[in-house]
């Protein structure tokens, strides 16, 4: 059973979103996603200062198995990206909810967070995905 922290919000496309104290939103991929992908060998991050829409492509993660698009769970402006993944993409496997984060947004509409899945809802998605 994969790790699904209760305090995060989730997209059915296997990204997580965390509302930080300063009002920004950090985005990464779930433990279930990294496990399904296998060893991550390459991450393509969005450019700084671009605007992304909820549910649209904001990057690519490539594992030994395949390339997968990363969709932004909420709309907003990219204010930080995790450059360390360029050198150490395996961090995504080792610490998907911590140092394996992908990018940070200034959300344009915080209410979009409420439309995402909670841990229980995502657990169901992950469970169905495993079959």
């Amino acid at each position: 059973m994969s790790n699904i922290p209760a305090e995060l919000r989730y997209a059915s496309t296997h990204e997580w979103a965390r509302l930080e104290e300063d009002g920004t939103v950090t985005v990464g991929i779930t433990d279930h996603a990294q496990d399904a992908l296998g060893d991550v060998v390459f991450v393509e991050l969005p450019e700084l200062e671009i605007d992304v829409q909820a549910g649209t492509e904001a990057g690519v993660v490539e594992s030994v198995k395949a390339a997968s698009d990363i969709y932004s769970p909420v709309s907003g402006t990219v204010i930080a990206v995790n450059d360390a993944l360029e050198e150490s993409p395996e961090t995504v496997n080792e610490d998907p909810y911590g140092s394996g984060w992908f990018f940070r947004l200034r959300p344009s509409d915080k209410a979009e967070l409420d439309e995402l899945l909670d841990a229980e809802g995502y657990a169901e998605v992950a469970e169905n995905d495993a079959h």
Binding site: G38, D39, V41, V64, E90, N93
Partner: peptide, 8 residues
Amino acid sequence: PLHYGSQV
């Protein structure tokens, strides 16, 4: 077996 944990 595809891998036993980490292919790399």
